[in-house]
Amino acid sequence: MAKSKVIPHHDVPLDQIIKPENIIFKKTKLFTDNVLSYCPGCGHGVAHRLILEVIEEMGIADKVIGIAPVGCSVLAYEFMDLDMQEAAHGRAPALATGIKRTNPDKFVFSYQGDGDLAAIGTAETIHAANRGENITVIFINNGIYGMTGGQMAPTTLEGMKTSTTPYGRDPRQMGHPIKITELVAQLPGTCYVTRQAVHTAALVRKAKKAIRRAFEYQKANKGLSFVEIVSNCNSGWKMTPVQAIKWLEENMLPYYPLGDLKDVGLD
């Protein structure tokens, strides 16, 4: 965010501000007390929070079943105070299908990374979307396999260095970074498909609205709602968090542009 030239100033003593009645933002109760296992600056934490805030605000926590993937967020169920299932790598949309079909009155979301959703789980992703399963998929795209130590992901950018593409991803050998969200948006079974990011306050606000909308679509039985979040992996990218979000802006977003790809309308 551009720095304001005028720095505001107030003389109110801190002990008059820091009182319970003046709280305007605090951690949602749907977080457990466990410390997030993610690296400093990782976007997973914000994505987790937005999902939990939306669930809290909709008052549906007692009807939600979440699905954790394999990847850095494999332990997502340690942090979300919800009933959750842990899926095999890539299979979350199949679990979600089984849950939702036999429990149509519940809310079901899967939380998946790029390797999970767009490589090993491509079939499950595409077919759950194509059947119009009435679920919400949250897709974290940081262009790399974080959990296993920074290997190439299906979404790794051309030329991007990873531990398995140490000289950069060569599309002639490794193919091009897959825009799975664009693929998913093609399918008639999806009702809402959007790409968001969470590395600035303004984008966080937008992303939260998108996640809320995705759950509202599920509530309205409209089909599969899909929210991609372009995120950073400072450790995998070998940068500081601040460098990483700058790199994300300059490299990821031109290839993965933000915004709604599909929104059929909630009415």
Binding site: I65, I67, Q85, A87, A88, R91, A94, L95, A96, T97, G98, I99, R101, T102, N103, K106, A123, E124, H127
Partner: peptide
């Protein structure tokens, strides 16, 4: 592969 994982999801409820 999907079928057995649908069992996982449904069975776990």
């Amino acid at each position: 592969l999907a079928a057995i994982n649908m069992l996982y999801g449904a069975g776990a409820t």
